[in-house]
Write a protein that binds this DNA or RNA. Structure first.
Length: 494
RNA sequence: GCUGCUAUAGUGUAGUCCGGCCAAUCAUGCGGGCCUUUCACGCCCGCGACUGGGGUUCGAAUCCCCAUAGCAGCACCA
């Protein structure tokens, strides 16, 4: 059979091979041009990461260009600091951006295209009151401006550009279909006048394109072939087709992925900004926020973020984002590289009777002896985690050191050296716990989503600033700050 | 209300276009075990899903209809 019909044979089995990776994009065989188009209202958050990572992955898969387009055509929603923050976040994510455009730099280009669109009869200048227009639209009735001759439209457009109208007095509308069953499609606006606030980058501007116009203009001029965005843009895609049709341009391939619910962090830019201003959050990287910089501060690697987003993919179903899955991706990346250290939460000082002085050597990484060891000198007393010292506990083993017997006088334990034998500890089912030499422990605050945990860590942790390490038996943490007073670490995950 | 989209285990995802190999994939999570001087890593075993109801068919996760649920849009935001 295999020899007779090899093609059918392979097809038979290909069908049920389980696909991994992203689905193919139609028409992408010869490369793609894609874009990531954030609004500069604040730093990027997890929601942005999905669009950013998906587009990035497809450009890498098919080859081509990846455009960063800053969509700053609404001065009300522009934070001047966001331009730089967005770029920082993109660098952190490791996107392979090939070029960057900023829409506020391109206003003359949009104006020229608008002139052309009006000239083609594809748009008109509407001077109706906005509320009135809405009523007409609902009733599928043309507003008086709709029938204006092309010359009138062009003249009114020039008047707009000459500031002959103020805010709200004139808007450019695309001629679509008043009988479209979806009222959202009917003669939607593409340019409006905004007298205030001034645009942070273009203080003299007052005629602004709406997103549906600038996006089409740029996508066409930049040669964008494929667009992957959230399904909140489905209606915009349909609107944009009208503009493409008026110009006679070729339409890109679109994919709209479903809504992603994210729990446990704040994502709304306005809410974040208010919280920062009010002093509720320490900044854009406060770990209670869903920004990428907050994730970075918690010790999440950019690769983990991208991998998690690619695993979610471009399905149009609404999904809920899983922190567990992100953490699992991160652990795969971080576990092989993170050095191990002792951190003793809620430390109790214990003087151990009868113990010889001893220098312990603990591996920096259990899977990689070549990385070397940390040395901890035992000189009589140690710090132990209070949670391990419960009245029913009669023996513990200090990891990489020796065994300790506990004798309880009521609630007060006393500690005595119990030999070096690991076998003894195993026989006694003693917990193997982390410890620190009392004389050289460094104060350490561990910040978790649940709150602050105070404790102490090894002195060597001081050299791990900005790195993710594992506090043995506690979890992975990122060393956020090192000072005279000690170490501050953020809990990443188990 | 109008317009459109979607529905696979706790979570994410493959399979759905072109019905049979699907008593349904992989990951994560959870439970158990092994390994281990970490409650990490690794390995093994297990748990767990085709929204409901009709229809077409020899045969339906896959096609059709209805229901239900969720989501998006109906901005001079992006």
């Amino acid at each position: 059979m295999q020899a007779d019909a090899p093609e059918q044979y392979t097809a038979l089995f290909a069908k049920h091979e389980h696909r991994k990776g992203l689905p193919d994009l139609e028409g992408a065989e010869h490369g793609v041009v894609m874009r990531f188009a954030p609004n500069p209202s604040g730093p990027l958050h997890i929601g942005h990461a999905r669009a950013a990572a998906l587009n990035d992955a497809y450009v890498k898969q098919y080859g081509g260009r990846y455009i960063l387009r800053i969509e700053d055509t609404d001065p009300k929603r522009v934070d001047p600091d966001a331009y730089e923050m967005v770029k920082e976040d993109i660098r952190w994510l490791g996107l392979e951006i090939t070029e960057t455009v900023t829409q506020s730099d391109r206003l003359p280009f949009y104006y020229e295209l608008c002139r052309e669109l009006i000239g083609r009869g594809g748009a008109y200048v509407c001077t109706c009151d906005n509320e009135h227009f809405k009523e007409l639209k609902q009733a599928k009735v043309a507003c008086p401006c709709r029938d204006q001759p092309v010359e009138t439209g062009l003249a009114l457009w020039e008047k707009m550009l000459a500031h002959g109208f103020s805010e709200g007095e004139a808007t450019v509308r695309v001629r679509t279909d008043l009988f479209n069953p979806d009222p959202a499609m009917r003669d939607f606006p593409v340019f409006r006048i905004l007298d205030a606030p001034a645009h942070p980058k273009k203080p003299d501007a007052f005629v602004y394109p709406l997103m549906n116009f600038s996006v089409v203009a740029d996508d066409h001029l930049l040669g964008v072939t494929h667009v992957i965005r959230g399904k909140d843009h489905i209606a915009n895609t349909r609107r944009q087709r009208y503009i493409y049709d008026h110009f006679g341009w070729e339409v890109p391939v679109y994919r709209h992925y479903g809504r992603m619910g994210i729990e446990g962090v704040v994502l709304s830019t306005s809410q974040m900004r208010k919280g920062i201003d009010d002093g509720v959050y320490t900044g854009w990287d406060d770990i209670r926020l869903g920004t990428l910089r907050a994730l970075a501060r918690r010790g999440i690697s950019p690769e983990a973020v991208k991998n998690a987003m690619l695993a979610i993919g471009i399905g149009d179903t609404d999904i809920s984002f899983s922190w567990d899955n992100l953490f699992a991706e991160n652990k795969k990346i971080v576990d092989p590289v993170a050095n191990r250290y002792f951190f003793v939460p809620d430390p109790v000082t214990a003087t151990i009777a009868g113990a010889p002085h001893h220098v312990a050597h603990a591996q920096l990484h259990p899977g990689d002896a070549a990385r070397g060891v940390r040395t901890l000198a035992f000189e009589g007393s140690v710090l132990l985690p209070a949670a391990e010292l419960r009245p029913e506990v009669t023996m513990v083993r200090l990891k990489d050191l020796f065994n300790v017997n506990l004798a309880w006088d009521g609630a007060t334990p006393s500690f005595a050296y119990a030999g070096d034998s690991l076998a003894d500890a195993r026989a006694a089912k003693a917990h193997i716990i982390q410890w620190l030499p009392a004389q050289e422990a460094v104060p350490c605050t561990l910040l978790t989503p649940e709150g602050e945990m105070t404790g102490a860590c090894e002195p060597a942790v001081r050299s791990e600033l900005d790195k993710v390490v594992q506090f043995e038996r506690v979890g992975f943490v990122r060393i956020d700050a090192v000072s005279e007073d000690g170490v501050r670490a953020y809990f990443t995950h188990k």
